[in-house]
Amino acid sequence: MTIDELAKGVQEGKRRHLAKAITLVESNREADQQTAQDLISKVRSAKETIRVGISGVPGVGKSTFIEALGNLLIEEGLKVAVLAVDPSSPATGGSILGDKTRMETLSSKDEAFIRPSPTSGTLGGVAKRTRESMMLCEAAGYDVILVETVGVGQSEFEVASMVDCFLVLMLPGAGDSLQGIKRGIMEIIDILVINKADGDQEKMAKNAVTEYQNAFHLLTPKYDGIGVDFLTVSSIKKKRIDEAWEKIQGFISALKEKGIFEAQRKEQELNWFKRLVEDEVLRRLWGSETNKEKAAELVEQIKKGEITPVKAAYDFLSSEISR
């Protein structure tokens, strides 16, 4: 398949082509990097889209929530793409991906496209591939892009930096989780959803909302005049999923009214540009053969005590760094 054919297929919304295109942007092969960029520059989304990040600790019910929300969106006539990123993949060996089994009805629907991605040993981390995959899905005609990521490591910050709305799922039982909440996370949340509000946990979930509201009260809001929204749902019993969607839509409209929506997407792109430059510089720095050799030499000297680390750094930087 040529790049033009691939781009055309994506643009026509062909499942097979979209999938292959994502594989291309996910590829670690040097030769694929340029081709991937060619592809990206050939496709473009014609309609307005909504990008939602969905995060939370393992087992909080992200996939189950997406199953419920996705089906609801399809009923409303929308097309849904889900990108599931699992940064907890082990350093060695492959990954085992079972997320789709929790999105059983959604995954069998024609209007849904779900792509779980292993992330072990990828170039550019979670952000690069997901951002580009998201653009491909938009070009293929999906209206809403849901990005599922486990709240582990840096991935949630990266995901938050590429979506319009960042939604975090929490378990009932606020007291405990409030302490467990990771630093900096509270600042990036747009909507906080307490999941598993069913059975004996329903009451607990309600109390949790109050506690969270109090805690968030002390924060300076992320956007002027748009506060964090809270609600309880049961993903498994499909309770109040429609409210969650209303809140997401409400949030997006508020952004649009205040003229933040487009500005934020632009800013995300600028930040992304900076990140890319930095990453690429680093990659070239450590990737070139001559630099690798030079560095290895210096490392040996440092180990033997023949040179100080500072001197070594100067020597390295003043030697010929590739281009």
Binding site: G93, S95, L97, S107
Partner: peptide, 19 residues
């Protein structure tokens, strides 16, 4: 297979060939 280095997707039980 995952331990040996494959990326493995596990499908749900009771799939149809279409799914």
């Amino acid at each position: 297979f995952a331990d040996m280095g494959f990326d493995v997707d596990v499908g749900p039980l009771f799939s149809t060939p279409e799914e």
